Computed example of a mutant assay.
Amino acid sequence: MPRISEPDAQPRIVVDSVRKSFVLRHTHSLKETFVAAVRRKPLTTQFHALDGVSFEIAEGEAVALLGFNGSGKSTTLKMISGVLRPDTGKVLTRGRVAGLIEVGAGFHPDLSGRENIFLNAAILGMSKRETEERFDEIVAFSEIEQFIDTEVKHYSSGMFLRLAFSVAIHTEVDILLIDEILSVGDEPFQQKCLARIRELHAAGKTLVVVSHDLNMVSDLCERGVFLKDGQIEFDGPSKEAVARMRG
């Protein structure tokens, strides 16, 4: 069962009046730009990904960010992770944050799995000592022990994702951000990852999840924030948020 946070728990995440826009280009070459300019067509337009979004997430909560494509949920997650900054407003976090957003982004193809564990763990904020203490557990979870000293460029996509996810999921964190990562790998490994995430939540970690698997997020998370056109359409029990999205 999802873990319900205490009502007086201090916020781990504060998103306050956040706005974020992106410039969308409509030409892809110098020729297209010239033709569009001659025809007086706009070369770019503004896309408002987030428009005054505000919410808080308490310590120990598991919250699903829901919405259709282009609603702003992944942008919000990247704001919380620090990958993006808001144009206006502010995003505050308390504690160590790890994002399963672009898993393996810090991996180097010419380094072995062993070397990449230490490299990626350092990027995620772990000390060398912390990584050494968790090394055997990381490798065992990934199930690629026999390839751990092979260069990552020789890994299959499945092996790569297993190792990258294993490093991220064993990082000592207070806030865990998850973006569609459970859609990769075979079903047994997905279930294993989900079980690990449940363990972290039960231990009091704060979770923020983005996924198109509505059944999974409504089961994993007690709260859902439904975004539509860059604004909050609903913020409440996850099952109700899912029902509104489906409705």
Rank of each mutant, 00 (worst) to 15 (best):
D235C: 11
K31N: 07
K78H: 08
A64V: 07
G67N: 01
H154R: 12
Q46F: 09
V103S: 04
L214W: 13
R39D: 05
G52A: 00
H26M: 03
S157H: 06
E145S: 15
T150A: 10
A202T: 15
M1G: 15
F160R: 03
R114Q: 09
V139G: 07
L194W: 09
G104D: 00
S166V: 04
A64N: 09
H48C: 09
Q46M: 12
L84P: 04
R12H: 14
P11S: 01
E56I: 12
M159T: 06
F34N: 07
I57T: 02
S127M: 14
G230L: 03
E151A: 15
Q146C: 08
D87R: 04
P86D: 02
S157G: 06
L77V: 02
K20W: 01
P237S: 03
L43P: 05
M79R: 01
E61W: 08
D235H: 10
Q46H: 13
T88H: 08
A64L: 08
D87V: 04
I101G: 03
M126T: 06
D186E: 14
S17C: 10
G247E: 13
N215K: 12
G204E: 08
T171P: 12
R39I: 01
H108V: 04
A168Y: 02
T150I: 10
D174V: 10
L161N: 09
L214R: 07
G67V: 04
A37T: 11
K41I: 02
S183A: 10
E172N: 15
I4C: 09
L194P: 12
Q190A: 07
A203L: 14
F68A: 15
S127Y: 11
G52Q: 00
Q191A: 13
D213T: 12
L124M: 15
H26N: 00
L124N: 12
L43S: 03
G70S: 05
K239D: 09
I144A: 12
V152T: 02
E32D: 08
A168E: 00
E145T: 11
S54R: 09
F55D: 01
L163T: 02
G158C: 13
V91S: 03
E233D: 14
S142W: 06
L200A: 10
